[in-house]
Design a protein around this nucleic acid. Sequence first.
DNA 1: CTGACTTTGTGAATGTGAACTCAATCACAA
DNA 2: TTGTGATTGAGTTCACATTCACAAAGTCAG
Lengths: 207, 207
Amino acid sequence: MKYRKIPNETVRRLPVYLRGLAQLSQQGVFSVSSSKLADFVNINAWQIRKDFSYFGDFGTRGVGYSIERLSKQIKKILRLDTLHKAAVIGAGNLGSAVLAYPGFRTYGFDIAAAFDSDPEKIGKNINNIVVEDVSRLNALRKRQVDIAIIAVPEKAAQQVTDSLVRAGIKGILNFSPKRISVPKKVKVITIDIASDLARLPYYIPSG
Amino acid sequence: MKYRKIPNETVRRLPVYLRGLAQLSQQGVFSVSSSKLADFVNINAWQIRKDFSYFGDFGTRGVGYSIERLSKQIKKILRLDTLHKAAVIGAGNLGSAVLAYPGFRTYGFDIAAAFDSDPEKIGKNINNIVVEDVSRLNALRKRQVDIAIIAVPEKAAQQVTDSLVRAGIKGILNFSPKRISVPKKVKVITIDIASDLARLPYYIPSG
DNA sequence: CTGACTTTGTGAATGTGAACTCAATCACAA
DNA sequence: TTGTGATTGAGTTCACATTCACAAAGTCAG
């Protein structure tokens, strides 16, 4: 058992493992081998074992991994063992879709608030959340929201980001393709839908 | 000038460069240096030069890169110089957001059709596109649609994928977190929103 | 208890990309 | 035409990630 630093790429896979384990657990399974899990999440068995080996011995040779113990450990590493409240900024098409997206709850996130600048949208109820005025972003600190999801038009992205940083937000999931600058202590993960689509044709044989 | 194989990570960055170049072009600029572009797209200058060096000499030493020549070349590499028609499968929250998403047009995609299985949604007009019944997916080949965007619930993902493959789809942008299996000749790029959010807390200092 | 079998954990080899450096090249002014 | 300043292009090194192979460690039947 060696406690090396966990590689970034491994961190990227951990949520995938976690979801797979949760599904297996729901099926009433208590233990799983690396090769079974490999089939389930579509990642090689040796990759899985290597990943798990970065944070201790969780398997039993000849048997496999205890789903509960493993899940608990992954949650701890990803800091998903504490509740995280998230706010969605931008209640347009994408923002509304994010508000309604069921996948976040799997990981225990609480989507707690939504904001927009458009008076038409403020006050609207989307998925049981009332859209507030962006001018109230600064109250996020008091409400213990530490994560924000940015789904505003490109032009507004940086301004919104600045407000979020002032409001004490620690992590941002950014759907805007525009680069946003933040202080080092704030982590940004960007999902750039259009550029992901744009590299698809590269892999398609022409003709 | 060496024509090595272009690394995957470089391909991932090419669309970002392309968008940056388009914006600069709109500002009336004709030439840009790697360091200017670096500021603009938030990627290191040497990384940019390295990336461009994989496919020929496009810069002029002492001056920089011709925006037009470079854009044209990147489009050619990504095969964005030919028109690509795309279909969106699933007209729920996420699917509707994708249909309305303005970012795809930057890269010259034509979002040409939308499908759903829900009779409530079939016939609805979203962003000038009429939602069709999924049973008509097989007509996609005739309509020369070669790319599909999957925005259906997890359960339906594999079934829809199979229909798409039968309809001759070559590339899939998959928003479903479920692993989908396809023949080797079909390229899948998955955007797993929830797991991207899930690794955010890892990078947030606790307390 | 023993032997056959299963599965993990990890060292080593290989592959890949990022970071850095600097010589080669070009524009331009004098 | 020559010197100066700017900028590219690419070789090299280093860091990280994947892949492989196998010993170690466990289960289980008889």
